[in-house]
Design a protein around this nucleic acid. Structure first.
Lengths: 339, 339
DNA sequence: TAGTTAGCTGAAAACGATTTACATGTTAAT
DNA sequence: ATTAACATGTAAATCGTTTTCAGCTAACTA
């Protein structure tokens, strides 16, 4: 690898390293003549400034670390893609921290900013990865950070997501309007705040409709297809079966439909199925899955913009920022069966 | 942000910075007594060595850049996840370079190693992102690099993938064995080497079976669901329709099935559909998609191991390394229809 | 003409670690 | 007692930039 440094360029151009540096970062301070002379040498030599040297001096790494439980999750992948795009245009690179849901890996990646390898954090999970003193105000204790698509239960943190309560309520409202009275909910793990928010929305819709809240109809899944299958099995064993199943993500909804079809149930004639997320494939399962659309690209863009704003040193008002969801009604939901 | 440096620790522990450095990186050179003393101070102060300073001196960034056309593609996401895992255990971080297929972004991310921000490259596309002199041997001109799942048409590069020719041939062999005589191929874009390899496998299988090669049955798609729909439309307009369609990825296969069902064709009674990749959802479309399984985790692990080996300064024999594929036969393929 | 001023440029000091070469102190061997 | 060997610690150079401060020149003002 070529190892030509700023000094070499300076020598060749018969100027000082300072001038070369200025040519690169504040050309307006340099006279046209020297500017061209230096630029020419830089081109000829194919000189690339060493970013590590610059980082050491400026105390800016130019990196942002994204702490993500699972990059293979299409929701996360969709958000991260928009984030990467925005970061790149602003001259930042994304460090990928797939944590597989493990606290120690969340901490590990958070440490990258402590050790100067990253300037800010994009957090896709709900735990605070930094050691903080709860008696002190949060700002000042943490680096620039934005939470993507989760709820950290702390309004001092900048957070971007869909209003899960409202979105879940809208989904259940629709099922209610279709005449369903026994609506089951397959939730996510109960330590995930966004899942609990969806559950609240579910409760709110039932209450507003004056429907009884049957605890048997509420089951916790794990956001996987298999868990959808398992939960659906339990629901079908019930003496009074649900006529609609609201799954807190599309994966589980796909699992539910798989079992339903296997057992000979018609979707949506016997049972309606509603998902959440609107992953790419929701449209292509049979019947096409009704679900709640999350605007991944917009969420990603909002996250990176809010983070960049902080990195520029500007104040960003903390708190949650909601982006609009959309109910996608496809073929897996329909009127409640008569009997 | 605490800004405690190695000098502060040294002062507090009444030793020199060099000793503190040794405590961290080569503890065996330090006496037990000083070791404990220094460690205690480090803990008390919560000192984290600044990685930028260290990088500048050691000329190692501890980063690996992954250059990927599209992180939302489940195949790439699956591979990258295994890569990230292996990198993290070796103390490396992954810089995510989603290029959206653009040459300039590939170059941009390759530049990260030129500028010292990354020590090695994981390449998910087939173009060489570094400017090289073709008259000189490649080694020495490029940094440690491994190609994932593509073919760069250059045996001086370390490359890990599935044997696309053999895999495609196996898929078509199976269709032939099921009695199909008119087997269509929906390929990927024709500038993608792995797609061309699959095409070769398709040709080889047909030739071996003594089947005529009808150019009408070969259409180039773009690896998207929509393109699957479009290509299938063209195939169905043919006077002599295919009885089986081999799609070079699962997305297009899903599109093909969507159109087929819409037009009232039975799968596989009227037309068999075969995919490639075995993405997670292939199992859950209806009918379940027969496809070629790619071992994503193994590919990722092999890639990162080969790269780490190079980063350790060891020679890795260049060339392609094939990992075993697997034919997943599900419900979308069956015997050719009688007539 | 002398005094300002504006516009460029250069010298040198950071930034925060690692590492080489050397100094000191201690023990063991002669 | 002298020396050698070893264990431990220190001082200082180094990595490649950026940036402050000061100096120089040339042009402008009074």
């Amino acid at each position: 690898m070529a190892t030509v440094g700023i000094k070499d360029i300076a020598t060749l151009a018969k100027v000082s390293p300072a001038t070369v540096s200025r040519v690169l970062s504040s050309p307006e301070l340099v006279s046209k003549k020297t500017l061209n002379k230096v630029k020419k040498i830089i081109d000829e030599m194919g000189y690339r400034p060493n970013r590590i040297g610059a980082s050491l001096r400026t105390r800016k790494s130019g990196n942002i670390v994204a702490i993500i439980p699972d990059i293979t999750n299409p929701v996360n992948a969709g958000i991260i893609r928009a984030i990467e795009q925005g970061a790149q245009s602003a001259g930042y690179s994304i460090l990928l921290g797939d944590t597989q849901g493990l606290v120690e890996r969340e901490r590990h990646y958070a440490d990258l900013v402590t050790s100067g390898q990253a300037d800010g954090v994009l957090l896709f999970c709900s735990r605070m990865p930094f050691r903080i003193d709860p008696t002190l105000p949060l700002s000042g204790q943490i680096p620039p950070m934005v939470n993507a698509n989760e709820n950290m239960g702390n309004d001092e943190i900048v957070q971007v997501a869909v209003d899960n309560v409202a979105a879940a309520k809208a989904a259940v409202d629709y099922l209610v309007a279709q005449g369903h009275k026994r609506i089951a909910a397959i939730t996510g793990p109960d330590d995930i705040p966004s899942s609990n928010e969806r559950l609240q929305g579910y409760f709110a819709a039932l209450e507003e409709a004056g429907l009884v809240l049957d605890p048997d109809l509420q089951i916790a899944g794990t956001y996987t297809v298999d868990s959808g299958v398992n939960c659906a099995e339990k629901l079908l064993l019930l003496r009074k079966r649900p006529t609609a199943i609201f799954c807190f993500n599309d994966e589980m909804a796909i699992g539910v439909m798989k079992l339903l079809k296997k057992q000979g149930f018609l979707i949506p004639e016997d049972v309606s199925v509603m998902g959440f997320d609107d992953i790419h494939y929701a449209e292509y399962v049979t019947p096409a899955l009704s679900t709640v659309h999350q605007p991944l690209k917009e969420i990603g863009t909002a996250c990176i913009n809010l983070l960049l704003e902080q990195l520029r040193g500007n104040h960003v008002p903390p708190g949650r920022q909601f982006l609009p969801f959309e109910l996608k009604l496809r073929a897996s939901t329909g009127p409640a069966p008569h009997f």
